[in-house]
Simulated assay, not measured.
Amino acid sequence: MKSYLSGTQTMKILKAPLWIIPAILFVLTLTTSSQAQLSVGLRGGVNFAHFGSGDPVLNYKPKTAPGFASLFHYAVSPSFSFQVEPGYAQWSAQIAETQTAPNYIREYAYSIFLNYAEVPVLFQYKPNFGKLQAIFSLGPEARFLAKPMKAKTKIIQYYNGQVTDQLDRTDRYTGDFGVRKFDIGLMAGIGIAYPAGPFKIIAEGRYHYGFTDIYGNLTGSSSSVYIRGISAHAGLLYPIGK
């Protein structure tokens, strides 16, 4: 029998591991070593959500959506660091199909848009290759729904090449009809960094694996949908302090 943890239960279970790394980061800041370095920065990029689902009917296709974050980077050594990235990300996907019959075509598209405040907390390994530096990132990420889920439905029907019916509608779902407001997941990424004067230019590709069934709170829902997908980012880091 399939069971789901409530959002409150999930938060209680994962609260401790989620905040361990920021706590370590704070302690390390107070006990700065000779090689430690604090940097701040910004990144921007795009997300491509495929939404993990075991339901073949919910065959979501990725839609390009924006994301950006502030970066708080603490290098413990030249090769190891922690990075906290409070920011915003939209995850969007679409179910689209075309039905055909003699003299008849029906085009259907259903898109959903989820807007989150996100906080990845990452451990990074960064070996050097001359001036170029590789970046391997791994860590948990928490996301909180910033706006109600938005859905767009578009249907066009043709008969003998002429439009006979069409629908273009936008809905917003809240309360008992909305998705869960909290999600926790794991992120892994690989990228590069390159120095440019006092700045460090960074670029990274990531995979995001959400653990929370965002439809699991809906009464009678037989579908399981998870925030999963890839993202691509670029940004800058600037050292502060010493």
Rank of each mutant, 00 (worst) to 15 (best):
Y4H: 12
L5H: 07
S6N: 00
T8I: 09
Q9D: 03
K15R: 00
I20L: 15
A23N: 02
L25Y: 00
L25T: 00
T29L: 12
S33G: 14
Q37G: 01
L38W: 02
L42M: 12
L58H: 11
L58S: 11
N59I: 07
K63M: 09
A69R: 01
F72R: 02
A75W: 05
V76D: 01
V76N: 04
P78K: 08
F82H: 05
Q83R: 14
Q83K: 14
V84C: 02
V84G: 01
G87Q: 01
Q94R: 12
N103G: 08
Y104M: 10
E107C: 07
E107T: 12
A109P: 02
I112S: 14
Q124C: 13
Y125K: 12
G130E: 09
L132F: 12
A142T: 11
A142F: 02
A146E: 05
A151C: 06
A151D: 09
K154I: 13
K154T: 14
I155C: 07
V163S: 09
Y173I: 05
T174E: 12
F177D: 12
R180M: 03
A188K: 11
I192G: 02
G197D: 07
I201N: 06
H208L: 00
I214H: 11
Y215D: 13
V225N: 07
R228K: 06
G241K: 04
